[in-house]
């Protein structure tokens, strides 16, 4: 499907679907997501310096139009993940982006450099996890800190650096800062901070109380963010939020994304959701007379 190939800076995704970070997160599953599921690229779970168990269960719950999760950035520590899981993930023969969730510039730098040395195709800086203190969203909503993190990591790496943002009042400022610091692409958006309360138990469901909402509930908000960012940025965008079929993916492409991330849709549509979305995009291009995905990126703008 060469017409589905998209270039995100120097990276080539075999189709515009990318597995979002934190889903299907170990090496062999990342490979399956590519070989069996048909993802055009995959992102690993977010890695930290030290091993993290994450929060106790329940860590994920369904709601009317999505899922809320507070996994808590569980990971075996970057060194173990890069040693054992990354090689399996790379057998999938698509771009493997290593997601990094540092709590300071030094942690981002150390893990990103190790990822490059271990053969990652790129890194995705998680500047937006909504449910872990001192990491993620608290950093992503501080444009000066964003600038510093991206600049340091870019300065040390040869592989591309993507910055993933969440929904904050300062999203456009932060994204502009990331672009100014040399980011190769912006991913928008992460899950949105949310809570689910069980009306029978009369208690919050998640052990952490707060989690991140994903799925159809956030799709239109994410499309708005990508649309706004496309107006002000010149680097590539990757849309994330509520993609579960080709229509929601095409909407992101028209808003200005060159690729889309898919995560919680795997829960209801299984691994094959990537194949289905990619085939649907191809049919859309054929039916409307476009020769490539690139032709429709940002088409909705005047």
């Amino acid at each position: 499907m060469p017409k589905l190939t998209v270039k995100i800076g120097s990276l080539k995704f075999s189709n515009p679907t990318e597995l979002a970070s934190g889903i299907l997160c170990n090496g062999a599953l990342l490979r399956r997501t590519a070989t069996e599921g048909g993802a055009g690229a995959v992102v690993t779970k977010s890695l930290t310096n030290e091993r993290r168990e994450g929060y106790p269960n329940p860590t994920i719950v369904g709601v009317r139009a999505g899922l809320i999760n507070a996994i808590g950035l569980s990971n075996p520590g970057y060194a173990e993940f890069l040693r054992h899981e990354l090689p399996l993930a790379r057998e999938g023969k698509v771009c493997v982006m290593v997601s990094v969730a540092g709590s300071d510039v030094g942690e981002f730098l150390r893990i990103s450099s190790a990822a490059e040395d271990s053969g990652a195709d790129g890194v995705e800086l998680n500047l937006s996890c909504p449910h872990v203190k001192k990491r993620g969203l608290e950093m992503g909503s501080d444009p000066e800190l964003v600038h510093e993190v991206v600049k340091e990591v870019k300065g040390a790496l040869k592989i591309p650096v993507h910055a993933k943002f969440g929904l904050t009042d300062r999203l456009t400022d932060a994204a502009l800062k990331a672009e100014g610091a040399g980011a190769d692409a912006i991913v928008a958006i992460n899950t949105i901070k949310a809570t689910a309360i069980d009306i029978h138990a009369r208690k919050p469901v998640l052990s952490n109380i707060y989690g991140g909402l994903s799925g159809p509930a956030i799709h239109s908000i994410a499309v708005r963010c990508v649309y706004e960012l496309y107006e002000i940025l010149s680097i590539p965008l990757i849309g994330s939020g509520g993609v579960e079929d080709w229509q929601t993916a095409v909407e992101f492409l028209l808003a200005g994304a060159r690729a889309v991330q898919i995560g919680s849709a795997v829960a209801i549509k299984e691994l094959n959701v990537f194949n289905k979305v990619a085939r649907g995009i191809e049919r859309y291009l054929d039916t409307c007379g476009f020769k490539s995905v690139e032709e429709i990126v940002g088409c909705a703008h005047g």
């Binding site: 934190g22 889903i23 299907l24 997160c25 860590t59 999760n69």
Partner: peptide, 9 residues
């Protein structure tokens, strides 16, 4: 298990 339905890995 964390999720129990196939997404967390």
């Amino acid at each position: 298990m964390k999720c129990g339905f196939g997404i967390c890995g």
